[in-house]
């Protein structure tokens, strides 16, 4: 584990230094990254220009969902976003070059092309989140206050697990990088809106199959003092860290299985 973190830090550090050599390019890409997510929020703002409530949620409440989901995805994307290149690595054989170095393959694949420009997404989501926290008319209990950082970290871990499971899937389906976009960017698109607007079956899938609801919906509903549309027991609102640990465990197993399959079949 220490060896993996060390390798990750070494490679990520080298990429940061090389990025800083082309500072103009870096600034352009970070701004672009910021704008890409800002446009999504612009669409939400336009929607709220036509209605005061969407699915019963106000703009600050929706912005709270948007900010928490965006920050969680942004963190996962910053740390593990390069994993979606795994299929390409299997196809062109460059995965082999990682396997002959004295460092865990996972750390090398995750740190490769470490892109600080992804801070653009985090920054934009964080700004929206700060605005939402200021604009929300909520009575904050100490538990609620603690729940915000907990849901951000748990959410990031759940998104991270999805990145890794998606990468592991590419050991078998090398062209299927886009499938994981459905769950990462798609999951982000889903959880930035109030859960009340979606069909119950979709919510069940996003709770029990892919645990997207634990990224922000359930803890946020608790903070906002709103009932859960599925009527699930209230203690689930605090289970995000537990779900995150389980998701990471599953992701670890999937990665191992994928790598093992690659090392026995070579393709």
């Amino acid at each position: 584990m220490a060896e993996a973190l060390r390798a990750y830090a070494l490679i990520a550090g080298a990429w940061i230094r090389s990025t800083m050599a082309y500072r103009f390019s870096f600034v352009m890409m970070t701004v672009g990254n910021f704008l890409a997510t800002a446009l999504n929020f612009a669409a939400i703002a336009i929607i709220f220009g036509h209605t005061r409530l969407l699915g019963g949620f106000s703009l600050p409440e929706t912005a709270f969902l948007y900010g928490t989901s965006g920050c969680a995805l942004g963190l996962a994307d910053l740390v593990l976003g390069s994993m979606d290149q795994l299929g390409r690595r299997v196809r062109d054989g460059t995965l082999d070059t990682l396997l002959v170095r004295p460092a865990p393959v996972f750390a090398q694949a995750a740190a490769d092309r470490f892109a600080l420009r992804r801070l653009g997404r985090i920054t934009q989501s964080a700004l929206v989140l700060i605005w939402a926290l200021a604009a929300l008319k909520v009575v904050w209990t100490p538990a609620d206050v603690l729940l915000v950082p907990v849901m951000l970290l748990s959410g990031a871990a759940i998104f991270g697990a999805i990145f890794v499971i998606g990468a592991a899937f590419q050991f078998w389906a090398t062209d299927a990088a886009e499938v994981q976009n459905s769950f990462t960017y798609g999951g982000n698109g889903l959880t930035q809106y109030p859960p009340t607007i979606f069909a119950k079956d979709l919510l069940r899938g996003a709770t029990f199959v892919v645990p997207l609801a634990f990224i922000n919906w359930l803890p946020a509903l608790h903070i906002l003092g709103r009932p859960d549309p599925l009527g699930l027991p209230g203690w689930l609102d605090f289970c995000s860290p537990l779900v995150a640990v389980v998701a990471c465990g599953v992701a670890g197993l999937a990665w191992r299985a994928g790598l093992k399959s690659y090392r026995s079949t070579g393709s």
Partner: peptide, 16 residues
């Protein structure tokens, strides 16, 4: 990984 420290590998068609 223990072996990796004691060997060197060059792939002609892809760079390490």
């Amino acid at each position: 990984t223990r072996l990796a420290r004691r060997i060197g590998v060059v792939f002609g068609q892809r760079t390490t």
